[in-house]
């Protein structure tokens, strides 16, 4: 009779993936993807975006607070630094728009904030090659949080009386009109964190932006981190995102890799 083995040769739970290319290999054409961060090289999942670009998945529905600036002007997001000190390994979702991979954007910032700032996604929109749903950032964030929390829909007082409420149910609570917004669940969530352990527990550095919001709001959450530490090193009261929300962890290179085409 065969008895179950008690001893184990390796850890049961290990979410660390060796390469960015492995981490995103199964993102299919037509997938819906959360892109975390807030338009900064210091909080964006740059290497995951680059890996998706190399992988080639297309027809994506991209959920992201901003549709990005693209390769040519991504460094404008660190204008506070002299040009020579700006991170050269910042790949925002504008890269995917530039490559024609995004069919639809669900976002708060769809276009350049000035007449003379025109970014790749805006060009695709103007050419009729992409569509967009623009939401206020609070409703965008809450729709994602709802997906993580298993809430199908919620009423928010933000939106009635504006274009955002068009075609949606509006209902009064205490005399105040509220609009019904539905959860935004994705196939994948790509987020950036500071440290992780092999359980996928995450801590963030600085404002946690959409990274914490999106982790867990998808079937597969992939975290790009600066450092992986031993299990137990992150104190329980310190952990921002429990590892159950995270399926894969991949660590950033120690030296910047400045071309998105480089296998990593």
């Amino acid at each position: 009779m065969v008895r179950p083995q008690r001893g184990r040769s390796g850890p049961l739970i290990n979410k660390i993936v060796a390469t960015f290319d492995d981490a995103v290999a199964d993102i299919a054409d037509g997938a819906t993807v959360h892109f975390g961060g807030f338009a900064s090289p210091f909080n964006s999942p740059s290497y995951l975006v680059a890996a998706v670009a190399r992988q080639g998945a297309t027809d994506l529905t991209a959920i992201s607070t901003s549709m990005g600036r693209g390769l040519a002007s991504a460094d404008q997001q660190s204008r506070w630094l002299p040009p020579e000190l700006r991170p050269r390994d910042f790949f925002d979702i504008g890269l995917l728009a530039e490559l024609g991979r995004i069919r639809k954007g669900i976002t708060s910032f769809a276009v350049g904030a000035r007449h003379d700032w025109v970014y790749p996604f805006e060009e695709r929109l103007a050419a009729g090659e992409a569509e967009v749903e623009v939401l206020g950032q609070g409703s965008l964030a809450e729709r994602i949080r709802a997906a993580r929390a298993g809430i199908a829909a919620f009423y928010t007082p933000v939106g009635p009386g504006t274009d955002v409420a068009r075609g949606k149910e509006v209902r009064d609570f205490d005399g105040v009109p509220h609009v019904l917004e539905t959860a935004l669940k994705a196939d994948f969530a790509l987020v950036r964190a500071y440290k992780a352990d092999r359980y996928g527990n995450l801590i963030f550095r600085g404002a946690r932006t959409f990274n914490e919001t999106m982790a867990g709001a998808a079937a597969v959450t992939i975290a790009e981190v600066d450092e992986v530490v031993d299990l137990g090193e992150l104190r329980p009261e310190q952990i921002h995102t429990p590892g159950v929300y995270v399926q894969r962890v991949v660590v950033r290179p120690s030296q910047p890799v400045t071309s998105w085409g480089t296998a990593l």
């Binding site: 910032f109 276009v111 967009v132 206020g136 950032q137 007082p157 933000v158």
Partner: peptide, 19 residues
């Protein structure tokens, strides 16, 4: 939303103005 742009940038303003 600027005139002439294919879409707008709502950002946080709708929630801020309400809340």
């Amino acid at each position: 939303q600027f005139e002439g742009k294919p879409a707008g940038n709502l950002g946080g303003a709708p929630d801020l103005a309400y809340g």
